[in-house]
């Protein structure tokens, strides 16, 4: 996943990666209410508040103006480190930038945008979401997709598990906040625990995956033991290492 460059000659290399990141979903724009709740949490689990980076999500708010600077200050007082803002209009984007924070578009829009480099260089707005089969029931947080997820398509369950009844072809990408289950061959990229959950897994009936990732820890096809290719497997994370074992 890194650009190949000779280390001796360059000052840095860019690496793609999915880092676990806490999203703070704001239900109010009032900094004082946020402060009160944070103070309570800080007492409960002080271990969590160690300059932990957070993304402030304002998607659920419809306040055109936001005391963003004050909110950030409140976070820092409680040992949280805001690194970016997600959602909100142009005004919020501009103030995020002015405060030296990054800005992410709202989640629905991001989910439909091409995520992999490949979707980019083939020039496609083509990275269309796979079309939901009508018989697929909507789960609370999770998602079931019936059919083939094809090259260039991306399918995600940002709040739960993702179940594919069918194949995930090479060049396709499936992502879930929870676990990923593929009842069929997995030939594309599968990412579980995209918001940092480590207690999740990737399950598939036939492993040929281009990429497996749990909470940002990944293995590429070339890192996978050839003995495991084609097997029915379970992939889990233990100590930043992906473990693949066969199921029967």
């Amino acid at each position: 996943m890194s650009l190949k460059v000779d280390r001796a000659e360059v000052a840095f290399t860019f690496k793609g990666g999915m880092l676990p990141m806490t999203v703070m979903e704001l239900a109010t724009a009032d900094p004082e209410r946020v402060a009160t709740q944070l103070a309570g949490k800080l007492n409960q689990s002080p271990a969590f508040f160690q300059h932990t980076p957070v993304v402030l999500s304002v998607e659920k708010l419809d306040a055109p103006h936001l005391a963003l600077e004050r909110l950030c200050a409140v976070c820092r007082e409680h040992k949280l480190l805001p690194v970016a803002v997600r959602g909100g209009g142009d005004g919020i984007k501009q103030s995020a930038w002015a405060l030296g924070l990054g800005w992410f578009p709202p989640q629905e829009i991001r989910a439909a945008a091409p995520a992999s480099g490949e979707a980019h260089d083939t020039g496609a707005e083509a990275a269309a979401e796979a079309r939901e089969n009508s018989e697929a029931p909507a789960l609370e947080g999770g998602r079931i997709f019936r059919g083939t997820v094809r090259s260039g398509q991306q399918l995600s369950a940002p709040h739960g598990d993702l179940v594919i009844v069918g194949a995930v072809n090479a060049g396709a990408e499936i992502l879930a906040a929870g676990s990923v289950h593929v009842y069929g061959p997995l030939r594309g990229r599968a990412l579980a625990g995209i918001h940092g959950s480590r207690e999740v897994g990737i399950f598939c009936q036939e492993l040929h995956a281009e990429l497996l990732s749990i909470a940002g820890n990944y293995k590429r096809l070339e890192d996978i033991d050839v003995e495991l290719l084609g097997a029915n497997v379970e992939v889990r994370l233990s100590e930043d290492q992906l473990n693949i074992r066969t199921l029967v």
Partner: peptide
Amino acid sequence: RDSDRILGLLASKTRRAEQNMDP
């Protein structure tokens, strides 16, 4: 691989897909 890609487009970037008609 390219055919697979085209099949993805047929399921999303056609009139039938956009207007929710039979695929």
